[in-house]
C-alpha cells in the first residue's frame, strides 16, 4: 500500500540526513510501528507520506502511484494524520476540529454531525458534554483523543499517527489501544504509527520497524525481532518490556501482594 523507495531527506543540503536510504513497504490493512530514539527521523518519515516534507531523493508511493502525482490537498484529505504536538485548532471547538476534514470534503452538515458524535463517543468524549469545549479547556490526553478522532473523521484508508497515545494514563491508554485495534481491523486501515513505547508497538502493530539515525535497523514482526535480532540495539530495545515486567514482578512478590495478577 505505502512504499518508501530508497527515500532520503536532509534538512541542511546534504551535510547530515534525517532519513537515509529508507526502503519499506507497508501492506494494505497492516499496522506498522516506527520505533527509535528521539531525533532518529520517525516524524520526518511520516511527513514524507503526506508531503508535509519532500524527500531529497527517492520517492514515496501509495498503491503504486508516486505521491507527487496525487493532488496534494486530495492526498492529505484522504490520509488521517495525528500530529505529535496534537495540533488542534485553538479557535475551533472540539466539534469543529473533528468536523474539519469532512467539511472540507463537502459532506452534508447532517452527515458531519453524525460522524462527529460517532467518533467522539468512540474516543470516550461524548459530543453532548465535550462538543462545544475549546481545546484550551481539555486535558492533554483529552486533546490527544480529539486529535485521533479528527484524523479518523473522513474515513481515510490510511492513517499516520505520531505518538497518538503518549499523554494518556495507563488505563485509558490500554482501552484506547484496544479500541483502536478493533476499528483498524474492521475498517482494514493501513496504519503507520510512531511510538516510543515498545510494549505498545508489540501489542498494536503487525510489524515493527526499528530506526536509528535515519536508517532502518530491522523490520519484522515482534516475534521475528525477538527470535532473530540482527543488531544489539534491536535486542536491547525488544527486551525492555520483558526485563521491566520481571522487575515489576519481583517488586510485587516482595510486597506479597498476591492478588496483583487477579
Amino acid at each position: 500500500m505505502i512504499e518508501f523507495n530508497s527515500v532520503s531527506k536532509s534538512y541542511d543540503g546534504g551535510v547530515s540526513f534525517a532519513v537515509k536510504n529508507f526502503v519499506l513497504r507497508v501492506n494494505r490493512g497492516e499496522v506498522l510501528a516506527l520505533v527509535g530514539e528521539s531525533g532518529c527521523g520517525k516524524t520526518t518519515t511520516l511527513k514524507m507520506v503526506n508531503r508535509l516534507v519532500s524527500p531529497c531523493s527517492g520517492f514515496v508511493s501509495i498503491a503504486g502511484k508516486s505521491v507527487l502525482d496525487i493532488c496534494v490537498q486530495d492526498l492529505r484529505r484522504n490520509i488521517g494524520y495525528v500530529f505529535q504536538g496534537v495540533g488542534l485548532f485553538p479557535h475551533y471547538s472540539v466539534r469543529e476540529n473533528v468536523s474539519a476534514v469532512p467539511s472540507l470534503l463537502g459532506w452534508s452538515p447532517e452527515a458531519v454531525e453524525e460522524r462527529c458524535s460517532e467518533l467522539l463517543a468512540l474516543v470516550g468524549l461524548p459530543l453532548a458534554s465535550f462538543g462545544n469545549r475549546m481545546p484550551m479547556e481539555l486535558s492533554g490526553g483529552q486533546a490527544q483523543r480529539v486529535g485521533v478522532a479528527r484524523a479518523l473523521a473522513a474515513k481515510p484508508e490510511i492513517l499516520l499517527m505520531d505518538e497518538p497515545f503518549g499523554a494518556l494514563d495507563p488505563i485509558n491508554r490500554a482501552e484506547l489501544q484496544g479500541e483502536f485495534v478493533r476499528i483498524q481491523k474492521s475498517l482494514k486501515l493501513t496504519v503507520v504509527m510512531v511510538t516510543h513505547d515498545v510494549t505498545e508497538a508489540m501489542l498494536v502493530a503487525d510489524r515493527i520497524a526499528i530506526m536509528k539515525q535515519g536508517r532502518i535497523l530491522q523490520c519484522d514482526t515482534a516475534a521475528g525481532l525477538l527470535s532473530s535480532p540482527t543488531d544489539d540495539y534491536v535486542t536491547k530495545l525488544m527486551k525492555t518490556p520483558l526485563t521491566r515486567a520481571l522487575e515489576v514482578s519481583k517488586l510485587v512478590s516482595a510486597a506479597q501482594t498476591t492478588d496483583y495478577f487477579r
Binding site: D74, N78, F83, G87
Partner: peptide, 18 residues
C-alpha cells in the same frame, strides 16, 4: 500564529487560502 497549528491545517489538506 503557532507553527504547529499552521502545519496541522496544511496536514489535514487545507489549501493556502483556506
Amino acid at each position: 500564529v503557532p507553527w504547529d497549528v499552521s502545519e496541522a491545517a496544511k496536514g489535514i489538506g487545507m489549501s493556502r487560502s483556506q
